[in-house]
């Protein structure tokens, strides 16, 4: 494994809420273009781990590097580094008072200083990729859950991020809409995007992931290829977990 390929490096990451320790020392290296799926029982700290990566949660201790920059350094401007990491939420979090187009062009225009016309052209192009170009002028409330999540994905992509973080992107969807969102994520993975995905979709993990990580009790209990992970789990906790969900 060559280190110059690593885009995210996490060292001894700890997070506690008051007295409750949620993350208990996480170490991981994520390489460019890698798709890492994070699995774990609810309350295991997997979402907190993901949200620490762009400091939506402030880590209590430990270091996170994005390429060469330590983003846990209080002196850096986190806003600049968040631009490099797109995030997709369970609850979509589209801006309900703005059209789909405006949802997608707000950040590029304000932060990247992209001219409006250019930002809009790019947004339409991205919407075409996910089959929603005709909804550019709709408001989020006029879209189905699956459509909203596809928009949320391309909204993040509009900033040209180097990494995409997904926080249970399909958990709030009706079952018939899960497929369309996973399909978009799969295409994104195939295009070479670095992705960290917290999910319960075992099928997606098996098919798309390069690595699968199992977090429980605030620690990484297993970190292996999907074949190993599902075929030959080593930690007893993972075995127990898989026996319940599969």
């Amino acid at each position: 494994m060559t280190t110059d390929n690593v885009i995210i490096k996490v060292r001894d990451l700890k997070k506690s809420f008051g007295k409750i320790e949620v993350l208990n020392g996480i170490d991981i290296d994520i390489k460019k273009g890698e798709v890492v799926v994070v699995i774990g029982p609810s309350g295991s700290g997997k979402s907190t781990f993901l949200r620490c990566l762009n400091r939506l949660e402030e880590p209590t201790d430990g270091k996170i590097f994005l390429e060469e920059t330590e983003i846990t350094d209080p002196k850096i401007d986190i806003n600049l580094h968040r631009q490099r990491m797109g995030m997709v939420f369970q609850q979509f979090n589209l801006f309900p008072h703005k059209t789909i187009l405006k949802n997608m062009t707000l950040a590029p225009i304000k932060l990247l200083k992209t001219p409006k016309a250019e930002a809009e052209a790019k947004a339409v192009e991205l919407l075409e990729r996910v089959g929603l170009a005709d909804r550019a002028l709709s408001y989020p409330s006029q879209l189905s859950g699956g459509q909203k999540q596809r928009v949320a994905i391309v909204r993040a992509l509009a900033m040209n991020p180097e990494v995409m973080l997904f926080d249970e992107p399909t958990s709030a969807l009706d079952p018939e809409m899960v497929g369309e969102v996973l399909e978009v994520m799969k295409e994104l993975a195939q295009s070479g995007m670095t992705m960290v995905v917290v999910t319960h979709e075992m099928g997606f993990a098996r098919e798309v992931a390069d690595r699968v990580i199992f977090i429980d009790e605030g620690k990484i209990q297993e970190d292996s290829s999907p074949e190993e992970f599902f075929g030959n789990p080593k930690s007893p906790r993972l075995k127990d977990f898989l026996s319940k969900v599969l």
Binding site: N54, L56, N79, L80, H81, R82, Q83, M85, G86, M87, F89, Q91, N93, L94, F95, L106, A107, K110, L111, A152, R155, A156, M159, L165
Partner: peptide
């Protein structure tokens, strides 16, 4: 306004 709204804004890099 739900926290998710400001989190979505902040995650895009907005101040």
């Amino acid at each position: 306004i739900s926290v998710g709204q400001s989190e979505a804004g902040r995650s895009l890099g907005l101040s």
